[in-house]
């Protein structure tokens, strides 16, 4: 996907809406709206956890924060609640091999979150995964 100058607009930095705007102007505001809705409907700080975790798994460059350090060792870290660990487990599996997400992992998620919350978090994972992979290859 090339912009109006005929060059790829994602090559020199991480993806953001203005890059998309250069390449596909008509979709940019709708993508922003969708991502904003996904973020605003996820519970607590799970949106940030998901976004940082996906970026780490994909090897995307992001600003280092204290939270990103904890996420590297999320499984054994006392920083996260059991609910947060449940969504981080699914996030990891989703990005690495979506076919291997199990019913047991999903049941664990149900213990801590409502159906609307689960839907919002899964949607956010899918968007971070999709746009993160786009950032990797484009």
């Amino acid at each position: 996907m090339a912009n109006s100058e005929g060059r790829n607009s994602w090559v020199n930095g991480s993806w953001n809406a203005s890059d998309i705007a250069n390449a596909q102007t008509h979709l940019a505001p709708f993508i922003d709206e969708l991502r904003g809705q996904a973020i605003s409907t996820t519970p607590g700080r799970t949106a940030s956890l998901i976004e940082l975790q996906v970026a780490q798994i994909l090897g995307l460059e992001r600003e280092e924060t204290e939270l990103s350090e904890f996420i590297r060792t999320w499984y054994s870290s006392a920083e996260f609640t059991d609910g947060e660990k449940a969504i981080m487990e699914i996030t990891e599996q989703f990005v690495l091999d979506v076919h291997s997400v199990t019913d047991e992992q999903f049941d664990k998620l149900r213990k801590y979150f409502s159906t609307p919350e689960i839907l919002a978090m899964l949607f956010h994972i899918a968007l971070c995964d999709g746009f993160g992979k786009l950032e990797m290859v484009a």
């Binding site: 996907m1 596909q24 008509h26 979709l27 709708f30 993508i31 709206e33 969708l34 904003g36 809705q37 996904a38 409907t41 159906t115 609307p116 839907l119 919002a120 949607f123």
Partner: peptide, 21 residues
């Protein structure tokens, strides 16, 4: 279960299919 999310998704999806390069 998330009507506003569904609306945003449907709108983007419609735009994707109806317009573009």
């Amino acid at each position: 279960h998330q009507p506003q999310l569904a609306t945003a998704f449907s709108t983007l999806y419609a735009e994707f299919w109806q317009r573009g390069e």
